[in-house]
């Protein structure tokens, strides 16, 4: 099993963090993992993104070009990466911010109004976790407990009060 994942959105949306939680969740389930951010000031096309690979054998390239799973948090990311998703792959996107359509019939596409939900549910800034919850459910590799462990490892101790909000956002994503 090798899952190539891209998290993409604007800088500040928590794209890199969501990737880190995912990588740690994979690690706690005993998988090989890698996490690679786009870096530098020029974030092409207005997007920040990170590549996460979860595999049951040593990981070759940590740079994901054709993702099996794309989590898109803004329109430019969606438009940039949707055509690159591997055949049979999955897209999960935030329909609050993305009105683009992808007419590929060789992939599965799921949407969730993550930003609206995060505002109405008093989880401001956690649309990334809502999308991650949704992705977990549709991809089905990572267990709830692993994600929780991933969160514990990724949230700095001094911000541990944020854990429960993150968990609630993930639950919300799973159930919507």
């Amino acid at each position: 099993m090798v899952k190539n994942i891209i998290f993409a959105g604007f800088g500040g949306q928590g794209v890199l963090f969501a990737g880190k939680v995912t990588a740690y969740a994979g690690l706690s389930q005993g998988y090989e993992v890698s996490w690679l951010p786009s870096y530098g000031p020029e974030m092409r096309g207005g997007t920040a993104n990170c590549s996460v690979v979860i595999a049951d054998r040593p990981i070759g390239s940590p740079l994901v070009i054709n993702p099996d799973v794309l989590i898109a948090m803004n329109k430019p990311s969606f438009e940039k990466f949707a055509p690159l998703v591997a055949s049979g792959g999955i897209i999960i996107y935030d329909s609050s911010l993305i009105d683009s359509k992808c007419d590929r019939d060789d992939i599965e596409i799921y949407d969730i109004n993550a930003t609206e939900l995060s505002q109405s549910e008093n989880l401001k800034g956690l649309s990334n976790m809502i999308l991650l919850g949704k992705a977990m459910k549709v991809v089905g590799i990572l267990k709830d407990k692993s994600i929780e462990e991933g969160l514990v490892k990724s949230v700095p101790p001094r911000k541990s009060e944020l854990l429960k909000h993150n968990m609630r956002a993930i639950e919300l994503g799973k159930n919507n």
Binding site: A23, L27, S34, W35, L36, Y39, P62, L63
Partner: peptide, 10 residues
């Protein structure tokens, strides 16, 4: 290199 420097692994 930039890739090895920036990537996270266990």
């Amino acid at each position: 290199d930039g890739l090895l420097g920036q990537m996270m692994e266990p």
